[in-house]
Design a binder for these strands. Structure first.
Lengths: 247, 247
DNA sequence: GGCATCCTTCCGCACAACGGAAGTGTGGTC
DNA sequence: GACCACACTTCCGTTGTGCGGAAGGATGCC
């Protein structure tokens, strides 16, 4: 948004107008969201659609096109990681039948790269491509715990969003938690996102030992989280090894 | 690439320069592929990277960024379909342990939307986001068989690429095959892509009965393909129902 | 040192993008 | 049937933004 307006920025603004909540937009809606004059939006959208970056549905609304999806699938952190991780996610999911998630750090947020949902799952709090803050989820805590200290302070300096009464919103509490995560190598987020669930996360390490992603499993609040720790840890290590193998 | 040069087209050309074979490119390479002067490529790439559409690796090369991956993940045919299909793909994969693939039609090609690989799979002929011609793979034959007759003729009029001695490259042979696919509701591609494998495909139908995607399983050449037909068919129907449920 | 490759910054000119105005097409209301 | 509201499309003259040549680092190799 804003500032200096280069054509490229406008094009990207148009793409950015599409969100998980509203993946289909009318031209007027795009124009409103990007603050571009209708005429301009019309031209840009037309060019994007001609290339396949956007697609026009039968009802006239625009959505993201397959071509853009293809290009996006080339994102190294998205695809390479996903390929390596998939078998392990499947195993974990197959055995436990709970939601399993893989996420990476991007700026000050968690981005979910993959998620295997319980068959009958209704709640779609997260899906591949969605973002969450770092302080409340198990994957977030893992990624934050092993992140650059500068980033940690930056995140803790900003207001920490409350999801439930259990969410840790005090920087010092979070700091203590991060220490524990570093010590144990596992993060447990107990009802910090929803009161009905807790999640157990572990770091996925790249060839040189740095944390490149985090894996988590979401289980009902009443279960004993520690029961899942070995499985999650094993899966995370397996992914790390698979990554190293695939260079 | 082509003809008239609008800025948008240039931006998209830059994105299009990234392919599955070479997901990481140096600036000079991008400039060469897009036929843009180095200076221009530099500016565009800079703007794209600032937004997060591209990311710069440690070695200075550029790759597709997470942000673009996120937007791409919103593609309705990519994500909605994938969400509905995943459980069924997993089941099929779990039971058979063979490669399972989900694909949609885009223009005159198949685009793979998801693929669950056998754990020890070495050959990565296809991956999520890759394209294949319509006449040789099981998913391709399914999609072509139920496609617009105009499209069928357009595809058959063009030269049909040969992958193995088994590939059907004669338009009439393919036409006969398509008829069979329509009659039986299943496509079998016997060693038409690789001599070591065959694939069995079935159509996934949307709420109004039209074919929106195709599902296939890849098995060793020596097996009996018909043994897999019921499982593939059931999975494809299941995905169709899941799609209808999710609107 | 000299050469090759790759990347980055600068800046004046030209042409492509901009966006106001006007036109088309649909659906709703009285 | 006349009117309005809304969403989209086309046209075209003006202007400001992107263009890309030239020159300046940075790094590596012989």
């Amino acid at each position: 948004m804003g500032g200096r307006s280069t054509v490229t920025a406008r094009v990207l603004d148009v793409l950015g107008a599409f969100t998980a909540d509203t993946p289909q937009l009318t031209l007027t809606e795009i124009s409103r969201r990007t603050a571009l004059p209708l005429t301009t939006a019309h031209r840009l959208v037309g060019e994007l659609a001609a290339w396949g970056a956007l697609e026009r549905a039968d009802d006239g609304r625009y959505g993201v096109g397959l071509r853009l999806w293809e290009v996006g699938a080339l994102a190294p952190r998205g695809l390479g990681l996903r390929d390596a991780a998939m078998p392990y996610l499947e195993d974990l999911h197959e055995v436990t039948r709970h939601n399993v998630q893989l996420a990476v750090l991007d700026d000050v947020e968690v981005v979910y790269v993959e998620r295997l949902a319980a068959r009958d799952a209704v709640s779609i709090l997260t899906r591949a491509g969605s973002r969450m803050p770092l302080h409340a989820t198990a994957v977030g805590l893992v990624l934050l715990a092993f992140a650059d200290p500068d980033l940690q302070e930056r995140v803790l300096a900003a207001p920490l969003r409350r999801f439930t009464p259990m969410t840790l919103c005090d920087p010092d509490e979070v700091r203590r938690m991060l220490g524990e995560v570093r010590r144990t190598g596992v993060a447990i987020s107990d009802r910090q996102i929803e009161l009905v669930s807790q999640s157990i996360g572990a770091p996925v390490r790249g060839p040189s030992g740095e944390v490149v992603a985090a894996l988590s499993i979401v289980v009902p609040a009443e279960g004993n989280p520690h029961a899942y720790v070995p499985a999650v840890r094993t899966a995370a290590r397996g992914i790390g090894r698979a990554l190293a193998r695939s260079n």
